[in-house]
């Protein structure tokens, strides 16, 4: 039996005096899509970066496909779509995708997957342009094509829908679902609650580095007697009266 794509146990991380993560437990099974949702600064990106081995954690353990996060085996099992793709500005999108394939040591299957993904995103000729000349949204799409074509057991997507146009959001959602159907685990961080509700099998709500609620989107709505995930979000944060509160405050604007 293949190991679980991602197991996070009691993870803690501090930046100086501020707590980024505290006792976070999480599991991403093969074929499932887990969404990390939370206010800005709640620790979503820190958790993704720790999982990717880009930063070390202070306590707990993160295991990626049976290997500790940051190890060579764990790195080889991860495909990351970062919030802000950077570096290699002078490579074309196609060259960047080829580089990723070479570094991960994947073969023709990955190339075929990248062609399918690029067509679906409508990148076409854009892949012949240098990354530095692409808009942020297009660059994220190229980054998604590179990552999702690898066929890695675990896919990490930071700020999944940020800067993407509505078409690209649809394509990304379908691509993640297709990869999950092939047995990949997906962990995504997003502020787009509609996207999270549509795509994720489980939503984990982070606040100040702590998991405050989790469950399937429908279960969360039912538990909080809420019509939308936005209401779930506000209720879980104990701020259901946010709208009326800021409306009052903004009268002074």
């Amino acid at each position: 039996m293949d190991p679980v794509p991602l197991a996070v146990e009691g993870v803690g991380k501090r930046y100086g005096a501020s707590v980024a993560l505290a006792g976070v437990d999480l599991c991403v099974n093969a074929g499932s899509i887990v969404g990390l949702v939370g206010p800005n600064g709640s620790g979503k990106t820190t958790l993704l970066r720790s999982t990717a081995g880009l930063i070390t954690i202070d306590e707990g353990a993160i295991t990626v496909a049976g290997a500790p996060a940051g190890s060579g085996a764990a790195r080889a099992s991860i495909a990351l779509v970062p919030d802000e793709p950077s570096g290699f500005d002078e490579l074309t999108g196609a060259e960047f995708i080829s580089l990723t394939h070479a570094l991960w040591g994947v073969g023709d299957e990955a190339r075929e997957r990248s062609l399918i993904l690029a067509t679906a995103f409508g990148l076409g000729d854009r892949l012949e342009q240098r990354l530095g000349t692409l808009s942020r949204g297009l660059r994220r799409q190229a980054s998604a094509v590179a990552a999702l074509s690898l066929g890695a057991p675990l896919i990490l997507v930071d700020e999944a829908t940020a800067t993407l146009d509505p078409e690209a959001v649809v394509v990304l959602g379908e691509a993640l679902a297709a990869r999950a159907a092939r047995g990949c685990g997906v962990l995504l961080a997003t502020q787009d609650l509609h996207f999270a509700g549509e795509v994720c099998d489980e939503i984990v709500l982070l606040h100040r580095g702590v998991v405050i609620d989790r469950g399937a989107p429908s279960a969360l709505r039912a538990r909080h007697s809420a019509d939308s995930l936005e209401d779930v979000f506000l209720a879980a944060l104990g701020d259901s009266r946010l709208r009326s509160r800021v409306r009052d405050a903004f009268r002074a604007l």
């Binding site: 991860i78 793709p85 580089l99 991960w104």
Partner: peptide, 14 residues
């Protein structure tokens, strides 16, 4: 290593 960009830096290159 991060100068490689997060996507490549997270990869298996040493």
């Amino acid at each position: 290593r991060e100068a490689l960009g997060q996507q490549i830096a997270a990869g298996p290159c040493g």
